[in-house]
């Protein structure tokens, strides 16, 4: 029999792993128990066809309880660069930390080709020590030819519709409608669960050149 502590902690990379609820491990036992009790009450409303959004809201508030604090990296100042032109005249790029890549162009994380999502979840601590790899994705790619793998978040939604983390279709549509001057020929994705020091180095050493070579002037960034 699990103790309450074992039970709540098991949702974060344990035997009950569920990345939507990994935050439970960071709540006190009472907070976790209260969260679960309220979830059941809201599910009861759902069973009666009432207020399904309240359960979603409850989950968001639960996630916020843990993530609504400054992270390990905080900065007092930063640089603001103005686009300096209309979006309809600019070249716009996309880079997400969702872990997308083109099928057949596996970035082979940790040296493993064809790694499953299950293995990526199991090896999350190794990912967090690794330098990330940038996957270039042609803007002409069809969503059905993209694959996603990321051990740090629940990919079930993005497996149904990749646009919720890698919005290539709305961007292509906006380029066609001339809302965007030009969508960069290559869009990018990487696994955001990675070592931050090596990330900063590889961005400066390699990624910037790739991005600049495409003439990208404005970048949409999507963390997961």
């Amino acid at each position: 029999m699990d103790t309450m502590k074992d039970f709540k902690n098991a949702f974060s990379y344990g035997e009950r792993n569920n990345l939507n609820f990994k935050f439970l491990a960071h709540l006190s036992e009472k907070e976790a128990a209260d969260f679960i009790e309220t979830s059941f009450q809201l599910m009861e409303d759902g069973l009666n066809g009432r207020f399904p959004g309240r359960l979603i809201e409850h989950i968001i508030q639960g996630q916020k309880k843990v993530y609504s604090v400054p992270g390990k990296f905080t900065y007092e100042t930063g640089i603001f660069h103005a686009l300096g032109k209309k979006v309809s005249e600019a070249t716009i790029g996309l880079c997400t930390s969702s872990g997308h890549f083109v099928k057949g162009d596996d970035p082979k994380p940790l040296g493993v080709e064809g790694m499953t999502q299950t293995e990526a979840v199991y090896r999350i601590q190794e990912f967090l020590r690794e330098t990330p790899q940038l996957s270039a994705i042609p803007k002409s790619v069809e969503m059905k030819n993209l694959q996603v793998r990321h051990g740090g978040y629940d990919i079930s939604g993005t497996e149904i519709d990749g646009n919720i983390t890698f919005p290539i279709e709305p961007l292509a549509c906006l380029e066609k409608e001339k809302h965007i001057g030009k969508l960069a020929d290559k869009l990018y994705s990487f696994v955001g669960a990675c070592a931050q020091g090596p990330l900063k180095k590889v961005v400066k050493d390699d990624w910037i050149d790739l991005i600049k070579a495409q003439g990208i002037e404005g970048m949409i960034l999507v963390p997961v």
Binding site: S68, I79, G84, F190, A193, K212, I220, V222, P223
Partner: peptide
């Protein structure tokens, strides 16, 4: 945090950025 670092470096390099994220973050 990864995207935050990427945004900061892109801005330093003269590329304007906008981050779309869940309010949880």
């Amino acid at each position: 945090m990864s995207v935050g670092h990427l945004a900061r470096i892109l801005e330093e390099e003269g590329i304007a950025t906008v981050v779309i994220a869940t309010e949880v973050f």
